[in-house]
């Protein structure tokens, strides 16, 4: 069975704009390494490897969202909840780099674009939402669901921005933005269900491995909610 290519291919966004985003991605990832090292202890490091492997696996599972249109998890929100924002962005990037270099998925020229959208924008949006929502709800699953939807839509609009700057075809930007946003709301709901199930499961069996439970909750002496 054919698994389709899932990320931005070469040629859709021109070379100069792709190069600018590649430089941006490298700089941002270097910053993530610096910040992430503070989080990476002997418990988080293997968890981060597992999260990357899990995201790789789940990205292969395209689910139908409309007739003739599918989608797959991007993983930013899931990674933020389990390993934190900095290491989370590095996890998603690891997956994208492996997919690009070994599986010919996502153009090599487009790697910076794909990392910017899915690993950086998607994770950043997921992080802001998770931190905010966990102050309101106690429920990790509901937080994962809502944050995933927003994170996936934000990542999809990252592509729209890149296309606006360096698109190689002259198509209506508002049509592309609308199509991308609409489809990615649906994909985000699918991602959210997967992310919610995953984090709820990990929180039940090994709550000590869930970064969000250790770090994002207000440090008041509250009981652990399910």
């Amino acid at each position: 069975m054919d698994v389709r290519a899932m990320h931005i291919a070469n040629g859709i966004v021109n070379g100069p704009v792709s190069a600018i985003f590649a430089v941006f991605a490298v700089a941002a990832l270097a910053y993530c390494v610096r910040r992430g090292r503070a989080d990476l202890d002997e418990r988080l490091a293997p968890m981060a490897g597992l999260v990357a492997a899990f995201i790789f696996a789940v990205q292969m599972l395209n689910f139908q969202v409309l007739p003739g249109v599918s989608g797959h998890l991007l993983g930013g929100t899931l990674a933020v909840i389990l390993v934190g924002p900095w290491v989370g962005a590095l996890c998603v990037s690891t997956v994208l780099i492996v997919q690009c270099l070994l599986f010919a998925d996502g153009g090599l020229t487009a790697l910076g674009l794909n990392i910017t959208n899915m690993a950086l924008l998607g994770t950043a949006a997921g992080y802001l939402l998770v931190v905010g929502l966990l102050k309101v709800f106690k429920n990790l699953g509901a937080t994962a669901l809502i944050a995933s939807v927003v994170s996936v839509v934000v990542a999809s609009q990252g592509f729209v921005l890149e296309y606006a700057l360096g698109g190689t075809t002259s198509l209506s930007l508002s049509t592309i933005a609308g199509t991308m946003a609409g489809v990615h709301v649906l994909i985000g709901i699918g991602e959210g269900l997967i992310a919610a199930t995953t984090v709820a499961t990990v929180a039940r069996v090994r709550p000590d491995l869930v970064y969000a439970l250790r770090r994002f909750r207000t440090p008041a002496p509250v009981e652990v909610a399910a």
Partner: peptide, 18 residues
């Protein structure tokens, strides 16, 4: 499970084909 995944174009690919 990957063998049972949808082979329809994903959201980005569908937009690219529009």
């Amino acid at each position: 499970v990957s063998n049972f995944a949808s082979s329809s174009p994903d959201g980005l690919d569908a937009a690219a084909r529009q």
